[in-house]
Amino acid sequence: MKEEKELFSVGHRACAGCGEPIAVRAILNEAGPNTVAIVCTGCLEVVSTGWPETAWEVPLIHAAFENSASVASGIEVALRKLGKKDTNVIAFGGDGGTFDIGFQALSGMLERGHNVKYVCLDNEAYMNTGIQRCSSTPYGASTTTSPAGKYSIGEDRPKKPLAAICASHDIPYTATATIAYPEDLKKKVKTALETKGPCFLHVLVPCPTGWRFSSEKTVELAKLAVGTGVFVLWELRGSNFNNINITKKLKGRKPVTEYLKTQGRFRHLFRPEIKQDVIDKIQKDIDEKCKRFGVDL
C-alpha cells in the first residue's frame, strides 16, 4: 500500500461483497491525497456521502448523475488556473452514469483534452435504482426491465463497447481492469496519472445484489469474467487498436458457462431447461472477441 492512511475509509454503507469500494480504495490509495474526486449519482455516492458523514478522505464533489465528466472538466481547468496543476482529478461514474446518461459529457471531456482520469465502475445495470437494464448489461442477463420470461431471454442486445469508443477519441490512455487483479488495476491507475490528458479506465465491479451471487464470491466472479474472456484486460495508448496491449492473456480459456452458472441473473439460461442457443451465441461472441483481441495464448 502506497499510502498509510486509507483515503476511502471504512464505515460506508455498501452491500457486503460490493466491488465498488474495493476498486475505489485501490485507486485512491494509488493516487494519494493530492487528489480531487468527482462522483456521479449512484450507489457509490449514496453509500459513501450520507451527510454529516463521508467515507472520502480526499476532497469530493457529487453534483448529478450524468455529469461527472463535465464537473471534472470545470475542476481541472479551475485548478490549473489557480496554480494547482499537480492535483489529480479523478472522476468516478457508474455504468449508467457513463455508458448511458453521462455519455455525451464524457465524450465532450475526452474530446476537449482535459487532464482528467475518468473511472467507470461497471456493475452492468442500474443497481442503485434496483437492477434495471443499461447499455452496459450483457446479452442474456435478466434485469428488472429486461426480465427473462416465456418470451424473453433477458437482455437481448450486446454490451456497448465503451472503452473502445473512448479510445477512438484518440485519448492518450485507455485501459480496462477489475478488482480481481488489483496490481494490474493499480498499475493502470499509475500509468493514467502519469499520462497527461484525458484517460479512461473501465473497471468491472461485480455486484452480488444485481448479479445474484453470494457476497463472498465477488473477487472470484471478477476473476471468472477475465478467465472466460467475458471481460478482457487491455490497455491502449492512442486510438490505433493494432497497438493494444492485452495485460492478461489466457492459457486454456474457461467456457463461459462457468461464469454464467454462478449468477442468478443468468439462471434462466439453465433452468428449467438449458437454452443452448443463447449460451452458444454468448460463447461464439466471446470466441470472436478473444480472437480479434489476441487474448488466447
Binding site: P33, N34, T35, T49, G50, P52, T54, W56, P59, I61
Partner: peptide, 11 residues
C-alpha cells in the same frame, strides 16, 4: 482543497 478534504454535494 486536498489539504483540507471535505465532501460537497452530500446525500
Amino acid at each position: 482543497d486536498p489539504s483540507k478534504p471535505m465532501t460537497f454535494g452530500s446525500f
